[in-house]
Amino acid sequence: MRIYEKIRDIDRRLIFLLIALAVSLPIIFQISFPEITTPMVKKVFDQIDSMPAGSKVLLAFDYDPASEPELQPMANSLLRHLALRRCKLYFITLWPVGQNMIEDTIKNVLLPEFGEYTYGVDYVNLGFKSGNEGVIKVVQTNLRKLYTTDGRGTAIDKIQMLKDVKSLASMALIVNVSAGYPGLKEWIQYGSDPVGLAIVGGCTAVQAPLLYPYYPNQLIGFMGGIKGAAEYDEILRKNYGDQISQRYKNGLQSWLSTEVGKLRASYTGEQLQQRIAEAQEKYKQKLDSEKKELYLGLFRMGPQAIAHLVIMLLIVTGNVTFFIDRRRRKKKTVSSPPAFLRKQEAGPSE
């Protein structure tokens, strides 16, 4: 078998192995590449950066764990930026498990890094409601018609920051992170556009081409996939890097103090010392991986970039073998005698 034939008929398990290496090696060695922020992503940043403190922002997280690796980095960065601008945050979701994504983001980003944010005063989780764009249509004119409690079961009238919120028109901006239907497209069509409200967001790379028709008039800016998240991380790091880093360190310090306090209440003697040492080790590890924790987009772009290059290499190789194959087949057809002659050469059949 010729070399090109071996490459042409390559075992697909080898391709799987190549992709596995292309994805896992950059993760293991924490490879990341510099990013240049494109105008579309910069517009998202500029829009959020122009929000005055206290602006009401509706944060719609319409995704699930399947797309979490692609969308969580941008959700984290958007939340971080909005909190740095001291905006009032109204979380909402049209996806059943979106509520988990909201709670996870609050737990991992808002609570440790922005301790001054109080539930019901600075942020609220309205949770999930079924009905897809039907929900958007209702909240567009009357939020209370559909939401009597928040996602945690507290009556809406008891929540301070919801007292002067009547509908979508009470918001200053919609920020959406979406993995499909219902998502960014529906928020534009039924939410922001009829009310004349500004909207920015992010979506999976697969969904991005479908959203370009709304840009830049109906959709101020958006991020497509991990690439968009990485670009956003880059611009956020340039502008707020020191503040973000300081908040991360403060959050970790506060976590360690709380943890040690809890351990002192539960353990004594050698066991206590051992547990404290474990907590300190965890603290050190988190401190060391600061950049990775804060700029997930940049770090997740590494494996994707390498995987893209491997796929491109595979496409090129596949086409080279295809052309060699075609040329050989043509040559074979030209050099071999016509069918009626071949029959004569073979002699009469038995």
């Binding site: 390559i10 697909r12 391709i15 799987f16 190549l18 992709i19 596995a20 994805v23 995987a307 491997v310 796929i311 595979l314 496409i315 190789t317 596949g318 086409n319 295809f322």
Partner: peptide
């Protein structure tokens, strides 16, 4: 990711 890579190699001609 794995299936996209395999499909790209075999079908993108």
């Amino acid at each position: 990711a794995f299936y996209v890579a395999s499909a790209a190699y075999r079908a993108f001609r």
